[in-house]
Simulated assay, not measured.
Amino acid sequence: MHRFFLAPECFGPGSVTFPTPQARQLRQVLRLQAGDQVIVLDNSGWEYRVELEEMGKAAVRGIIRERRPSRGEPGLKITLFQALLKGDRLEFVLHKGTELGIAAFVPLRSQRCIAQGPTPAKYGRWRRIIAEAAEQSGRGRLPALEPLQDFPQACRSAPGLALIPWEGERGMSLRQALEKCPGSKQVSLFIGPEGGFTSAEIELARSCGLLSVSLGERILRAETAGLVAATVILYHYGELG
């Protein structure tokens, strides 16, 4: 069934009203008709099986037939602090990270970043990418997209177990770090730009309590490293596989 995240004001007693963009998609793109059913999500962990009733041009109305908890959210919350990347590489990270189950994204400005800070229009596009990926992958909540942060600020505010993969790390692997923290419910993951983090940034991160870890002998691209690390973390804590 097709899935849609809707704002709280779209929900009424026993019914849902789809605003114009979603109404147009239902009628003109998906070509659904009265009597067809879709899944609607309220972004609080609940989903609703809705039967379409009124297919108007400006709005579509449906009747709620069932309310149930969404099963698509991991119990572990990963916040990905991703340094700005060139081109559309960060969009790839947002899309695939949402599919995996990342709970929040924080764009990060570090010393070797080449890409400029995102404009409001870019942020709007990023939110649409996250929403589409969340609907497609069966998520029950939209991952948060936080404002741009500078690296020192992010290091000081990172919640939970804070990890920073670094190609120069020789003393601790990601697996070893996770084994030391078996009960973690929240993980902050820091990923650098195309040129990686500087040694000074790694030292700053360590002074703030972050653990530098190795992802193995191979060097991963900036848009790949966070997704690989998040996959390993989710698998380790029983959220994948």
Rank of each mutant, 00 (worst) to 15 (best):
A133I: 00
L161S: 11
A121H: 13
R109L: 15
Q116R: 14
P120V: 14
E132W: 10
F151N: 02
L145P: 01
R127C: 09
P107I: 04
L148D: 02
L108F: 08
I130P: 07
E146P: 02
L145T: 06
A154L: 05
L161V: 12
C155V: 08
A144M: 13
P165D: 14
R109Y: 07
Y123H: 15
G140Q: 08
A134P: 01
E146Q: 13
T119H: 01
A154M: 02
R141V: 13
G168Y: 12
R112F: 07
Q153L: 11
I129T: 09
S137I: 01
Q136A: 07
S110D: 07
W126A: 03
F105V: 10
A154C: 07
G138H: 11
E135F: 07
I129W: 01
F151H: 01
L108G: 04
P118D: 04
W126Y: 10
I129V: 14
K122R: 15
G160A: 12
R125L: 05
A162V: 09
A158D: 13
P152V: 05
R128C: 10
G124Q: 11
R109K: 15
P152E: 03
V106I: 13
R139H: 08
L161H: 12
K122S: 06
L145D: 04
C113E: 02
Q136V: 03
L108Q: 05
A133E: 07
R141M: 13
R127I: 03
P147E: 06
A115L: 01
S157V: 09
S137Y: 02
E169Q: 15
Q111F: 10
W166F: 15
V106Y: 03
P118C: 04
R125F: 04
Q153G: 08
C113S: 00
G168A: 15
R109Q: 14
C113T: 03
I114L: 12
A115Y: 00
K122P: 00
A144E: 15
Q149A: 14
P120E: 12
G124V: 02
G138F: 10
Y123C: 13
G168V: 10
Q136M: 03
Q136K: 00
A133C: 05
E167I: 12
A158Q: 11
C155G: 10
I130K: 00
K122I: 06
A144K: 15
A134G: 02
V106N: 08
I129S: 06
R109D: 12
P159E: 13
S157D: 14
